[in-house]
């Protein structure tokens, strides 16, 4: 065979592989959306779930998912930023740093159900936090932190050393150079990683079943007192999220419309994650243009 033929053949194989990936993706997305979207209604999104009768909604689950997501990011972002900045800007090149990096990698491949059980034993039982949003947020932080740290480290490393030298040569301290020059330049990448990890947190169920719990107590959406047990903002209350709800409805629910609810919930979950992903790209680009003052 001559070079031209081999090239044609290889191109053909690569195209086939790419197309099969896209077909699988579209099939899954299409199936979920096709089955779920017709059942999504304003009523479905804004009413409480029903345990025994049909016609229940996902209001509380949807809110719990978003609230848990925000709390998780509040907890994990500062830690991830600190660790990422240390690893990329300050850590010396020696075996301790390599050990930290390897640990982060191992942690990132930990099965989420293991993280959940660990969270259950440590936070729920030992530290007496009970099934609560806080326990869930800390467990999700464990689950999220490795990839977030890695992403922040990689984004910072992506900024050329010339930028750091420019800062240093103007009499800026390493800290100023890092925070005012390197970090802004890396921000689009960090933001994209953050939003993608938000998608992962949003869809996580296994780590939450034993930490945030499987019940969604009725809460008062007008009670803004974070310490009140009926407040929707109280982080010490148990909270079933959307992904956990789907799991529960499918395994132990007795409502007659369980199938409908799980299809529609899955569709909502997928749509929210799609919005996160598309939003990540859009915001990342926008931010980059703003910071670099292009356009």
């Amino acid at each position: 065979m001559n070079a031209k033929k081999i090239d044609h053949l290889a191109t053909g194989v690569i195209y086939t592989l790419v197309i099969s990936v896209i077909v699988i993706l579209i099939a899954i997305l299409g199936y979920i959306l096709f089955n779920g979207v017709p059942d999504i209604s304003w009523h479905f999104l804004t009413s409480a779930a029903q345990s025994f009768s049909a016609g229940g909604g996902i209001r509380d689950q949807l809110f719990n998912s978003l609230y848990l997501l925000i709390l998780t990011i509040i907890v994990s972002l500062p830690i991830g930023l600190g660790a990422g900045i240390y690893l990329s800007e300050y850590a010396p090149n020696n075996w301790t740093t390599e050990l930290i990096r390897t640990s982060v990698e191992v942690l990132s491949s930990l099965p989420s159900v293991v993280v959940g059980l660990f969270g259950y034993l440590l936070f729920v039982i030992k530290l007496n936090l009970g099934f609560s949003i806080l326990s869930g947020a800390i467990a999700l932080t464990f689950f999220n932190l490795p990839l977030l740290t890695r992403n922040i480290e990689e984004s910072l490393r992506g900024v050329p050393d010339l930028q750091r030298e420019a800062g240093m040569s103007l009499g800026l301290s390493s800290w100023k150079t890092t925070t005012k020059i390197v970090l802004p330049a890396a921000l689009p990448g960090i933001l994209t990683g953050l939003i993608l990890s938000a998608g992962r947190i949003f869809g996580e169920a296994a780590a939450l079943i034993y930490t945030a719990g499987q019940s969604a107590p009725t809460v008062d959406y007008t009670n803004w007192n974070i310490f009140s047990t009926t407040s929707f903002l109280n982080p010490m209350r148990p909270a079933e999220t959307l992904a956990v709800h789907i799991w529960k409805v499918n395994t132990e629910s007795v409502t007659p419309d369980a199938h409908l609810i799980s299809s529609a919930s899955s569709a909502v979950l997928i749509i929210v994650i799609l919005i996160f992903n598309l939003g990540a790209r859009f915001l990342g680009n926008k931010l980059y243009n703003k910071i670099t003052a292009s356009k």
């Binding site: 010339l162 420019a166 040569s169 103007l170 009499g171 802004p184 670099t292």
Partner: peptide, 24 residues
């Protein structure tokens, strides 16, 4: 050293402007 570098400036081989506006 930060004070030293304010008195002794440096320009590098490859242009390295910050990813900011000209003024900034």
């Amino acid at each position: 050293v930060y004070e030293v570098r304010k008195h002794i400036g440096m320009v590098f081989q490859r242009p390295n402007p910050f990813a900011k506006s000209i003024k900034e």
